[in-house]
Nucleic acid binder design. Structure first.
Length: 760
DNA sequence: ATTCAGACTTGGAAAAATGTTA
DNA sequence: TAACATTTTTCCAAGTCTGAAT
């Protein structure tokens, strides 16, 4: 950020953003940098035994340096020019290469779809042309899909509900009437609940980009106004008490609340905070408070701790009252009417002001996120609806009636200048339909993925650099489930990359490593600055291509310099309607789950063990997608507790065994009914405890394996829920065992529609 | 072709709610 | 019944992708 501003000033006479970007990139301290990276690698090697390393912290430090080490720009020659020359050189070399190495290329056993780390076996099979799937032209596939995606009849026989939304109201009331007449009073309630569950998936979708016909809501709930601190809570500057103006005090409390957080120790955070805080100060304050290090927020911090403690200690009645108030608010603002149905809103509360907490090494961390007022708010609703009323004495910024979008409320946030929205809950029709559609697109990919894979393998040999890069990138996206990797504005966000934005410094080539040939070692920060570390064997041709792409480049140069997400997606679009890079992630995630479930589920095992298998399948996907979490702070202890329980259970078993033995002996002697019964019951008791033990042990295994893996995201966003539902039905496992209430609501469509035979 | 705003999905952490134990 | 552990929900940042403007 600093550096960037500096440059902007110097270079202000010219240059587009992209020029600037390259200038920055191309004049960094190489030696310095690469040394840093080496050190880093060294570290990561030590710390990782598995092929994917999960420690983020190490990486972050060094990535931080990236920004700092940029050197001054010097020459003015056009960037594009340079680029072109570079590429020409490359193309020449490429020709040489392909003619010399191409011939000897034998087809390896490796087909390019070896398992991602720790997934036992998988996509391999997918690559082989399957019997069932012919390679249809994409057009055709599209049609197929559409058929698939249309609501299915079965469950609506009796009611003929497949009609246009317009007709819904009629349907509904008619239905109500029928019920009212038919049912006895006692049944009414239950019936009503049933009716409330609207099966939108049995109705027709909008086709023309229209998202709704009617939309009515009450607008957002604003953050509560700032309550000044009581006088006894003091702020000290340089050891001296200082009463702050309300504005300055509010911002100070944001910092005070966070005192225990690591953020407040970070330089950038402190610097950004202090700068923005000073903007809120009165002139006197501004002239006095010049050094953040001399500020003492301790009492504020304590005050808020006390407050939250007090909240915990509230009496039952008070808590209940609070809960009721919350519920009232939810009832009033938490729902909207969209096309005759009451739907839950996801986030009806406006984000309160506070300090921006970017993730990873974010240049803007600590900046003040300002309070949103009604005047910042754009309302979206239908013309014929009751327009939400702004708070007294205020006006909305704008009121819109745009039914081509799904949001109800929007505002522009001041840190990145991006737009924030209030939208509906995942259980809503509008989200659900889209979600369903996403999986249908992925299923269409399944039908043509063989063809696409064959195609990009062909493209590895292309004469055109652009095509080769595209093909290798796509291979990574497919094989490793990498994200597309859009370009980002440098200095505005943390330095993270995806596939297309990988830089030379992010991969290392090893002709041989760990006994395998042609290994690529990935090490970069992905979304949310989560580290991706992986060593993968690739095909020789890919390897050679990578060498080519890296020739004559600096570590900080783009690996795929002729490629970006827009080029890639345009290409994908041509291969299959609706295909984009992220579809591969969805596809590979879902297909992996399906295969893993098939492979891991043991019919003879009990429910607990089956669930463990499910979780393991889920885990395989999470690993593929690199979904990591920080190990829970209480992890070790919680493992210990579980172990204690297990030990206790084992003792119990010993006891039960002895008792059984005794009973048996008794029975042998007496041979009467009473002792026989006793033996029976002891046997049962033993069995019971053994089962409990088994459950605990399964739980322990599951938890251990899940230490640094986050299952949530894949479960919620990547796995076709119908696969899971089919699995549940097949093995007679309750849906509740794998989906909690929220999840069941979100996946209601899948729960209703998938049967045991569903195949992704 | 490139840039940019906009809209929407995806992501882990943290807070809140709920369950369990001493 | 408080303290602690675990699960669920909320929060909001950070991606992807589209389409319009230039």
């Amino acid at each position: 950020m600093r550096e960037r501003n500096h440059h902007e000033r110097i270079d202000s006479h010219k240059s587009s953003k992209s020029d600037e970007k390259h200038k920055h990139k191309e004049h960094k301290h190489k030696e310095h940098k690469s040394k840093e990276r080496d050190k880093d690698r060294e570290k990561s090697k030590h710390s990782s035994s598995s092929s994917k390393n999960h420690s983020n912290s190490e990486y972050k430090e060094s990535s931080e340096k990236r920004h700092k080490e940029k050197l001054k720009h010097r020459d003015g020659s056009s960037d594009k020019h340079r680029h072109k020359n570079k590429e020409k050189r490359k193309e020449e070399k490429e020709k040489l290469h392909s003619s010399s190495s191409g011939v000897g290329d034998k087809i390896k056993k490796e087909n390019g779809f070896t398992s991602p780390p720790r997934i036992k076996q998988e996509v391999d099979d997918e690559y082989l042309p399957s019997v069932k799937v012919e390679n249809k032209p994409t057009k055709r596939a599209r049609i197929d899909d559409d058929v698939d995606f249309k609501p299915k009849k079965p469950k609506i026989e009796d009611e003929k509900r497949t009609k246009k939304r317009k007709a819904e109201e009629v349907t509904k009331s008619k239905k109500g009437k029928m019920k009212g007449q038919a049912d006895g009073a006692g049944k009414k309630k239950k019936k009503k609940e049933e009716e409330d569950k609207w099966k939108w998936w049995e109705e027709e979708r909008y086709t023309d980009g229209v998202k709704w016909k009617f939309l009515e809501h009450k607008g957002p709930v604003f953050a509560p106004p700032y309550i000044p601190l009581p006088d006894k809570v003091k702020f000290y500057y340089d050891g001296k008490h200082m009463k702050l103006s309300p504005q300055a005090e509010e911002v100070a409390t944001f910092f005070g609340k966070m005192l225990d957080h690591e953020y407040t120790t970070k330089d950038i955070f402190r610097k950004n905070f202090f700068k923005d805080w000073r903007k809120e100060m009165k002139p006197e304050e501004k002239s006095t408070i010049v050094d953040l290090n001399k500020c003492d927020f301790e009492e504020m911090n304590q005050h808020f701790k006390d407050q939250s403690e007090a909240r915990k200690q509230m009496s039952k009645e008070e808590k209940l009252k609070l809960k009721e108030e919350n519920e009232k608010l939810l009832q009033e603002y938490g729902f909207c009417i969209m096309d005759n149905h009451k739907e839950r809103i996801a986030n009806f509360r406006i984000e309160p002001p506070g300090l921006f907490r970017g993730r990873g090494n974010h240049p803007k961390m600590g900046m003040l996120k300002r309070r949103i007022r009604p005047e910042d708010i754009i309302i979206n609703c239908s013309k014929d609806s009751k327009v939400p009323v702004p708070p007294h004495g205020h006006k909305w910024k704008t009121i819109r009636h745009d039914n081509k979008v799904t949001w109800l409320v929007s505002w522009t946030e001041n840190i990145q200048g991006s737009i924030k929205y209030i939208m509906l809950n995942p259980s809503s029709r509008i989200k659900g339909e889209k979600d369903w559609q996403k999986y249908e697109t992925a299923r269409r990919l399944k039908k043509c993925v063989d063809k696409i894979r064959a195609q990009y393998r062909e493209d590895w040999k292309s004469k055109e650099m652009k095509v080769r890069q595209r093909a290798v990138a796509l291979y990574f996206i497919d094989k490793l489930a990498l994200r597309a990797g859009n370009e980002k504005e440098e200095g505005e966000t943390a330095d993270t990359v995806g596939c297309c934005s990988l830089r030379v410094e992010h991969i290392k080539l090893h002709t041989e490593l760990d006994g395998q040939e042609y290994m690529v070692e990935f090490d970069f920060l992905g979304k949310d600055s989560i580290r991706y570390y992986n060593k993968v064997p690739v095909e020789k041709r890919v390897f050679k291509n990578l060498q080519l792409f890296m020739e004559n480049k600096q570590p900080e140069d783009d690996l795929f310099d002729r490629l970006n997400t827009s080029i890639l997606n345009k290409h994908l679009q041509e291969l299959m309607d609706g295909l984009t890079a992220k579809v591969f992630r969805t596809y590979n995630a879902s297909i992996t789950l399906q295969q893993q479930l098939k492979e891991l589920t043991n019919p003879d095992e009990n429910v607990a063990a089956k669930i463990l298998s499910y979780n393991r399948a889920n885990r395989a996907v999470a690993i593929l997608c690199n979904h990591q979490r920080a190990p829970p702070k209480t992890f070790e202890k919680s493992m210990q507790n579980l172990q204690t329980k297990i030990d206790a259970k084992k003792d119990q078993i010993g006891m039960a065994r002895r008792e059984l033995k005794g009973a048996k002996a008794d029975h042998k002697v007496k041979k009467d009914e009473k002792t026989r019964k006793s033996v029976e019951s002891k046997k049962k008791a033993l069995q019971r405890v053994e089962e409990q033990l088994m459950k605990l042990e399964v739980q322990a295994t599951d938890r251990e394996e899940n230490k640094q893996i986050a299952l949530g995201t894949s479960k919620l966003n990547y796995l076709d829920p119908r696969i899971s539902i089919a699995w549940c039905k097949k093995w007679d496992i309750q849906t509740e065992k794998i989906y909690n209430k929220t999840q069941r609501e979100k996946f209601a469509w899948a729960i209703d529609m998938a049967d045991e035979d569903y195949e992704f």
